[in-house]
Each structure stands twice: as C-alpha cells, then as structure tokens.
C-alpha cells in the first residue's frame, strides 16, 4: 500500500472494515464483539476507559490468557461482560473479595477489578480498604460518574454537595467521598486520578498498574450525561468532557486530603502515589517460610489445585 492509494483506502474501510487488516481497530481483539453495541448511553465515558484499558493491555504485551477482569454491579460492572478475557461479573460491591480469591489461588493471574464508584466505595468500601491495607496485587479501576447510574441516578457516596439526584431532589449535602485520599490512607501503593478527557494519561496509568505489583488504584472521573449531568444542567457528555478539560489541574504532588470532588470546581488529577512495599503474597510467603522453614509448601505460580 502506498499513500497514492489513499483515496480508495478509506471508503474500503467504511464499507467492510473486516476485509482489510489495516482497517481493524486494534481494540477489537479485546472485545466480545458479538455483544456490541454495548448498553452504555451516548456520551457515557465508561467505553472510553475500556478503550484506554484495551490499548494499555496492548502496550504491556501481557499474555491475555492470564489477565482476568472482575466487576461488581452497575454500569461499569458491565465491563467484565464486554472484554474478551476471562471475566467475572459478580455481586454488588464484592468484586474485590472475589478477585482476592482468584489471585491467591492462582498468583500467576493478573487480576483487574473494574467497577464503579457506588460498587467499590460504598457497598464495597470495606473490601476496598482491606485490599489496600493488605497491598493485595490487584489493579483496581474505578470509573466514578458521581452517581448510581444503573438504578436511575440516585445519590452516591461520591455525589458532590448540592448535586440534584433522584434521592437528593433538593441537592446533596453530604460531603463526597475523596477516594484517592481514602485508598492512600488505607495502604494502596499506587494511586491515580484522571478523567475521561485524559485518555493518554489514563492509558498510561493503566499500563503502569498492569506492570507493577501491589494494590494499584485508578479513579477515572466520567460523565453520566443521562442521569447526573442532565439533572444538574451540566449539558451532555461532550459538554462534560469540555468541562473536565477546563477545570482539571494536573498535580502529581497534590495533597490528597484536599482533592475531594465538588460540583463544578477544580478537579485535581495526577499520578499521586507510587511506593514499594511487599504485597500480600510476598508478605505471606516470607512469614510462613520464616516460621515453618522447609515445612512450608509455597503456593507459587501454579494454582492450588488438587
């Protein structure tokens, strides 16, 4: 192919993209294309994060047979159903403990927890805290759209003050949970926040998480035009993306105590934290080997099968 052929190239792709390999979207191989189109609304950012995730996976070169995605319940919880990997769509709030069992029974697996803010921080908040404390080697991607979307836009722990939702019809007044601050305090060894506008940064953060060991947490602020932005007169998905562009301030050294989300104020983004400490499995193995010496039978790469 040469540039001279350009004029015929594009229409060919539009008409029958499958016929020319170059026209194939590189993310297709990660998707259950037989389930497309997905259920997410026009302007929803979840798909954008999945796009970033697929590209991050591609860049890491990880063996996709060993990458597992675990989701909870909610709009983001549906990610597990669209990625062409071993994938588990579990119960509301419990993706992390399910992932814990997967990882510990087969440490060879790269285990990604992909879920929403309501799922991970509210009903599943306790598991989030404890997985961070344990420094369990999980890659947790939390798409935060500031509301419960799947159930119709109710107030969440992450809903900024004064936001109108179906269960805060006169405006929310509880302070929104500052998730990066929480997980950092709980012991996470990688903490980042980006928005769906920051696709390249999001992808890079994901790439980093996939290739490092220990509890890694990424919050991606994402539009829910149908239920959150619309009720708060904040426009559609595109308007929200433009808003993110406008109000985001990148600061890797931000004081995490001060980056809580507000309705229309600044959004602090960045790769806030990356530290090294033994992950759960390392700590477990070291302790047991120390106490039991040669009597300890290490659970290694192979699953603990019988």
């Amino acid at each position: 192919m040469s540039t001279a052929e350009t004029p015929t190239e594009m229409p060919l792709c539009e008409q029958a993209p499958g016929e020319n390999p170059i026209c194939e979207n590189p993310v297709e191989q990660f998707l259950r294309t037989d389930r497309m189109p997905h259920i997410w609304c026009p302007g929803c950012g979840i798909g954008t994060t999945v796009n970033c995730f697929a590209r991050a996976l591609l860049k890491t070169g990880l063996d996709l047979r060993k990458v597992v995605v675990v989701s909870g319940i909610g709009c983001t919880g549906r990610v597990a159903g669209y990625v062409k990997l071993d994938s588990f769509h579990t119960t509301h709030g419990r993706a992390i403990p399910f992932a814990t069992g997967l990882k510990l029974a087969n440490p060879e697996l790269t285990v990604v927890v992909y879920s929403g803010d309501g799922d991970l921080t509210s009903i599943g908040g306790n598991h989030l805290i404890h997985a961070a404390r344990r420094n369990l080697d999980l890659k947790v991607i939390c798409v935060n759209n500031l509301t419960y979307s799947m159930t119709g836009g109710q107030a969440a722990a992450t809903t900024p003050e004064d936001s109108i939702t179906t269960t805060s019809p006169y405006g929310a007044f509880e302070p929104a949970m500052n998730i990066p601050h929480l997980v950092a305090a709980a012991g996470a060894t990688f903490v980042a926040r980006w928005t769906t506008f920051h696709v390249a940064q999001t992808m890079k953060a994901m790439q980093r998480m996939l290739t490092r060991r220990g509890f890694s947490f990424l919050e991606v602020i994402s539009p829910c035009p149908t239920l959150y932005q619309r009720r708060n007169q904040m426009g559609d998905g595109l308007d929200t993306m433009k808003h993110y562009k406008e109000v985001s301030v990148s600061n890797n050294n931000a004081n995490l105590a001060e980056i809580g989300m507000t309705k229309s104020g600044q959004i602090t983004v960045g790769n806030f934290l990356e530290i090294e400490r033994p992950d759960y499995l390392e700590a477990m193995r070291a302790q047991l080997r120390n106490r039991l010496q040669e009597r300890y039978i290490e659970v290694g790469g192979a699953p603990c099968q019988n």
Binding site: S2, N25, L31, I46, G47, T48, R55
Partner: peptide
C-alpha cells in the same frame, strides 16, 4: 479511537 466510547472509530497511519 482512544476517545470513542463505542469502539466505532479508530485512526491508523499509512505504512
């Protein structure tokens, strides 16, 4: 391609 939430578009360079 990276922004598209619906995996409907992607860009590529000519070889």
């Amino acid at each position: 391609g990276m922004y598209c939430p619906d995996f409907a578009i992607h860009g590529f360079r000519f070889p």
